[in-house]
Every structure is written in C-alpha cells, then in structure tokens.
Design a protein around this nucleic acid. Sequence first.
DNA 1: CTGAAAGCGCTAACAA
DNA 2: TTGTTAGCGCTTTCAG
Lengths: 344, 344
Amino acid sequence: MMTSEEIARLCGVSRTTVSRVINNNPNVKEETRQKILAMIKENNYVPIEHARRLAGVDSNIIGLFVLDINISESKERVSKSTYFSQLVNLIIDQANNLGFQVLVSIITSEKQLDEIKNLFISRTVISGIFIGAFNELPQLNDFVISQYPTIIIDYQPKATSNESNRLVINMDNFSGAYKATQFLIKSGHTRIGHISGDLRKLSGIERYEGYKKALLDANLCFDKSIVREGNFLEDSGYLLTHELLKENITAIFCANDVMAISAIKAVKEKGLNVPDDISVIGFDNIAIGNYIMPALTTVDAPLELIAEACVDSLKYFCKNKHFKQKEIRIKTNLILRQSTKVIS
Amino acid sequence: MMTSEEIARLCGVSRTTVSRVINNNPNVKEETRQKILAMIKENNYVPIEHARRLAGVDSNIIGLFVLDINISESKERVSKSTYFSQLVNLIIDQANNLGFQVLVSIITSEKQLDEIKNLFISRTVISGIFIGAFNELPQLNDFVISQYPTIIIDYQPKATSNESNRLVINMDNFSGAYKATQFLIKSGHTRIGHISGDLRKLSGIERYEGYKKALLDANLCFDKSIVREGNFLEDSGYLLTHELLKENITAIFCANDVMAISAIKAVKEKGLNVPDDISVIGFDNIAIGNYIMPALTTVDAPLELIAEACVDSLKYFCKNKHFKQKEIRIKTNLILRQSTKVIS
DNA sequence: CTGAAAGCGCTAACAA
DNA sequence: TTGTTAGCGCTTTCAG
C-alpha cells in the first residue's frame, strides 16, 4: 500500500515534506514540490483520510439528516416525496461543488436519531443539516444542535441559546401563501378552500397563516369548514378535495403541488372542470406541475436557493466558526398557469 | 474530551478492556462489562471513528454515486428526476437499516469522478454503488470498479475481469417493455409509437428492444418513423409526442412515466383525448401517475427491490468478500389504469 | 479474564 | 527549506 512514507522514500525526502506538499504548505522548494507531486500522481497516492483526521485535519463530511418519523399511521414517507428528494439532491450537488462530501441519513426512529448524535461525537461529520423536523422538534436531541454547527430547514427555533452555531433556513411560506390566496380573491373567488400541509411543520403552519391573513385582509370571513388538514402527500390532497367539494367552494389553495395535482384529479372525477368550475393553486413549483393538464398555477419556492444558502453558510462557518446570520428567508413567487381562472 | 483512556481510568481498568467491550469481545467479565457500559453511557462516550478506522476497523460508509455527466446540452439533470431521487432515498433508507452510512455524490464532471476514486483510495468509503452510468461507461474509471466492491445499477458489463467484486442490478426492462407493447397490440393497436429513454443507458436500450420484439412477434412491422429518441425527462416526452402525433398513431409507449405524463399533456393540447384517441403507457410506476387524469397505465418497476438487493448484496459482500451473484434482475409488472383503451 | 506495548498513517511543533 | 520527534485515539498481538 502506498503511504506518505513510501512517497518520501521514493523522492529522497522526509514524510514531513510530503505532508507539507499535500497540505499546500508554502515552505517547500518548488523543485521538491514538483518532484513529490509527480511521484504522488505516478503512484496514485491519496492519503488515508482517517489518518489525517486523527492527526487533526478537519473532516469535510457534512451530515444531511432527513427526519421522517411517524408522519402518519400509514407507511408513507415524506423522504420519498418529490420535494424532499429534490432538496436532498440539490444540497448534495452544491456541497460537492464546494468541496464537501455529504453523508445522508434518513431518520425513521428514535434509535436512528441517537445514531445521528454519534456521527457528531465520533467526528464522522463536522456539521449537520436537518430537514423535515416537526416544529416542536421533540425528537431532535438538543445536545447535538447546541454543540455542533447545525442548519435546520423549515423550522422555527424556540430557545435562543447558543445561536452562533445554529442557522435556520426557511421559505417565505407566509407571503407565498398570502400571494396565492390574494390572487384567488382578486380573481373573484370568495369561497376558497385550503388543504393544509402537515401542521406540525413550519411550512404547513405558515402557509395556513398566509391563507388566513389574505382572507381577513380582504374582509372575507375565514371559514374553518372549508379547511382540511393534509400532510403534503398525494392521497391527502385527493381525499380531502373530495370532502371539500361538498362545501360549495370555487377554489382550493393546496399547501403543495403534489396535493394540488391530486386535488385536480378529484375535481375531475367529480365531473367538474379545472379551472372552469374550480380553481386550484399549489405551492413549490415542482417540475411535473407544468406538464399536467391544466398546467398548475403555483408558488415558486426555489429549492436551489435553499441548497445554496445551506452550503454557502456552512462554508462561511468553517472559516469563521460562526454563522453570518441566524435565519435566512427565501423569497417565493406566484407562477400563473392554467389551473386558475377569473370568475364573475 | 472523552476518550477510551478516560473511561478506562474511571472504571479502574485498561483501555484494552474498554476496547474489548466496545467491540463485543467475549473475553470480559460480565461485571466489568456492565460497569464499563454504564460509564460509557453516563459520559456519552462514542469512540472517534477515525481512530478506530486507522487502527484497522473497517468503515461502514458506502458511497452512492449518481453519474450525471452531460445528459444533453441543456442544464437538465437526471439526478433531479423523481426516479433517481427516489432510488437514492430508498437505498439510503435500506442501508441505514442494515447499519451502513451512505455518502452520496453527484458526479457532473470528469474532475468529480476522479475525486470519487480518491474516496476509495483514502478509505473514506469501503464500497460503492453507481447509478446513472451510460452503458459504454467511458467515464467510469475501471480502476475503481476493478479494485473495490462495486454495484452498478442499470448497466450491462462488457469485460469479465475480476467479477467477484462487481455486481450488476437491473430492472427486467426488456420483458416490461414487451408486456406493455404486447398489451397495446392485444388492445387492437397497430400503430404504436415509442418515445425511448436515453439510448446510452441500458434501460433505454432494453425498453426499446422489448418494444421492437413485441411488435415483431405480433407480425406488426417495426416502423422507425414512429419512434423518437427521448431522454427520460419531461420536456422530451412533451416535445416528441407533438412530433409523433403527426404520424397517424393510436398509442404511445413511453420509456418512463415522466415522459408519459407530459405526452398526455401534449395529446390533450392537440385537442385529442387519452385514452379515447390515443392510448399512453409509461414505465416505472411513479406515485403521481396514479393521481393524474387519466390515471397512467404503466409498468411497475419497483425501486424498493433494487435498493434492497443493493444493500443485501453489500452486506453479503462484507461477510464473504465476494458477491453471491453477478447480476440481479428485478421483475416488472404491467399496471392497468385508465390511459389505455381497447380499440376496434 | 486483563494489561502492556506496539502500531495504524498522518500532521505539527521544534530544531536545524 | 527540511528533518526529527511526538503524538492523534484506537485496536490488537502477546504475556500474564
């Protein structure tokens, strides 16, 4: 096996010098450096990570933890949803671009959550990104998020302890939902139903709040009987729409696109038309939304920006040992397509 | 910082004994073991991974590599597709369940591919799973797949060198496509278009082959003018369907669901109806396919089984230092829904 | 059943 | 500019 010792011998220098070259230490004669570099390349030498880490070099592995505990009695998993999958991929991609490796874990039980903690303590990862947490976060061990640099996506922190190594990144759910609802109101709708997301999650809560506020600001009464609590997954959109259609509504604001798409199916099954009879609007702007009929009006919530913010912030943290800010909000935009319509 | 030394001191034993407990070595008096275990728990002690690795304990990190080089001139990424995202998630989930950690990397350039190689050499990962490779695999460095235990999904290996540490896992694309096409034929269709997947990938090739064979077996002529080469992504399904509709066809077999869904949109835009005018059938059985109108007839290609096969095989490899088999084929099943129809 | 000692491959003072 | 030396925290022979 190739070691730095071996490279050193081959070059007639000491291991230290080889180490200097590897770590870009300037105190090496250019000629020596080139010679060593060549030898390294020739022998396909790569230092054993564990040895470097043990000797004090920081790991470049960040943990990406998808919390997916007990979403419902069923075996449905948010981690399988388009939305989460995409976000995971985007974060990995961004991280790889900035020189991080990403260890992804899907947490489906308390036991697994403990193992996550160990990833930090054992220094397998240097920091972590959490997604999918319930806002109460009863599950997430405070120990971890207080001791290690941590980013939480879609979460409203409670305590204010030790904030310098914790960052929260959120969509601007409230104003996105507000804009969506307001748009429906401006289009003449007054009976606007809402299928919420999981209300244990910040995005679910805030989108619901935005919907309510828009209603109130327009002097429309907020009628709880045309609101249903969904869970961001296909079947809830489908089933709850069937319920909602009994309530004399002309529009539905769904807390995400997946539910909106299945809402459209439910509407059609009822013999009604989207958008002629019922307007439907989603949230997220997933790719397929533009490829269904009618194309889905939605709120663009760019996951790329979340991924970027994550990784940039982590990079910043590595340099400065603290995050630049406590919270980042990502702007959302209404995307008008064909699933909504002006009514008289 | 807590170390095994410290635990040892606290318990009045040597590090060796603590190490034995951690590694489940039976040669420890039960009483001593319990005492140490308690102390470990009390102090939240977890051994530093790097130190263990350096001392010879195998890593439990497997690499999951999504090859996503240059799919087309555009910036589209297969790694963002529902299909890949899901597969990635499923593999992670399975792996976590069997005690592996998963390091995911998305490879978008030759440079990144080199870095992958380093992950093996530096012993960051002990083995790797590759998905998204072009069948020619000009990019994938043979060095890696010949030296390290490697699983490749959706790939037809050429060489037969060093097979004991390489496993290929594939869907039964051919028979799935065959069944789909045959079903359309039995439903009375004779002019059946095909929108293929990326023909640089095995799944693209084999689904195309299955389509052809079914046609030939039914004595229908294979007409290249009603075949279009797609790329498994939304827009190709959409655009190519518009082309295909000029060709006097009554059915389209799309190489995956995402293209099938956008094909349906294209058909509707043309003022035609699915399935009355045009039958559409997909492949993959993604979740949303059941929630569009009409619900998509498709070929179920269960990613869970691939994920399971992957991780089980890896587990087996860890024990026996070789894979149990060279190739695994996952069965596919036709799922009949509403996007296809019998014609006279 | 337990401990002493050596060593995994690397980095980082400190000296030269 | 380079080398010597001493660890990093753990596992693992080998003795006892």
